[in-house]
């Protein structure tokens, strides 16, 4: 791990109107790491991703991405700099075909040979997308939509891939598939920031973890420690650390 983190957040405050959702969050993500953020509903997990991606404007604090201060940047600028957020609930464009969804994901990229090669590579990861290439996104099943959403994030070759609840609303078999996929992405040395309610699963594959509660980082460190600590798991993650 080198000294320059891909993402470094310090003392971040974010508010919805007058209600403060994040109280001075500090965290960092290094190159090639898989960092997981856990916590119960309303702990501020999605909020921190939205703030990083520029959807929410921070009230104060600093967000450094690849060494540059980016707090207050627009989402499209951050995407151009190499960030990709796969939003909660997938949010694919329903009337656009799989191809068109991917082309929006590749916005700003030239449609040249390297693009074609990346696309071919994505099809190896997600063979189903090749089959459904000309179908409207809204006609895909939930699992397929999640694949499309992740593929749409990957096609821009991000330096930081953020996944917001990728297993939400999927059947257990599909959840397995998604986590296998995340492990595969990690083995390709992609830097990933993963938000999950399914803490047990997320912690099992993470390099490091942050535990959020009430808009604060309650704990950060090795996932094994976190899982081993009965107090923390029972207080912050429910009795057995989420459903298994």
């Amino acid at each position: 791990m080198n000294n320059n983190p891909v993402l470094q957040i310090s003392d971040l405050y974010v508010a919805y109107g007058s209600i403060l959702a994040l109280h001075g969050v500090c965290m960092e993500v290094h190159k090639g790491e898989l960092v997981s953020i856990c916590g119960v509903n309303g702990a501020g997990k999605s909020t921190v991703l939205k703030a990083i991606a520029g959807v929410l404007k921070p009230r104060s604090g600093s967000i450094r991405f690849k060494g540059k201060e980016v707090a207050g940047y627009k989402p499209e600028q951050l995407h151009k700099m190499g960030m990709a957020l796969v939003p909660e609930g997938r949010e694919i464009f329903p009337s656009l075909t799989v191809e068109e969804n991917l082309r929006i994901g590749a916005y700003g990229r030239r449609l040249d040979k390297s693009f074609a090669a990346d696309l071919e590579d994505l099809f190896n990861l997600f063979p189903i997308l090749k089959e459904r290439y000309h179908q409207a996104g809204g006609l895909l099943s939930g699992g397929e939509q999640q694949m499309l959403a992740i593929a749409r994030g990957l096609i821009s070759k991000p330096d930081l891939l953020m996944l917001d609840e990728p297993s939400l609303g999927l059947s257990p078999a599909l959840v397995d598939q998604i986590f296998e996929l995340i492990i595969e992405l990690k083995s390709r040395n992609i830097t990933i920031l993963l938000v999950e309610q399914n803490a047990q699963r997320a912690l099992a594959i993470a390099d490091r973890a942050y535990l959020f509660a009430n808009g604060r980082v309650e704990y950060s460190g090795q996932p094994q420690e976190l899982m081993g600590n009965v107090d923390i798991t029972s207080v912050y993650l429910g009795h057995n650390g989420g459903d298994v």
Partner: peptide, 22 residues
Amino acid sequence: TLGIAMRGASENFVTARLMGVP
């Protein structure tokens, strides 16, 4: 690309911006 992005943006403006659509 512009046209596809416009169609995407009219369905979900925020997500389109997250994909780099200005």
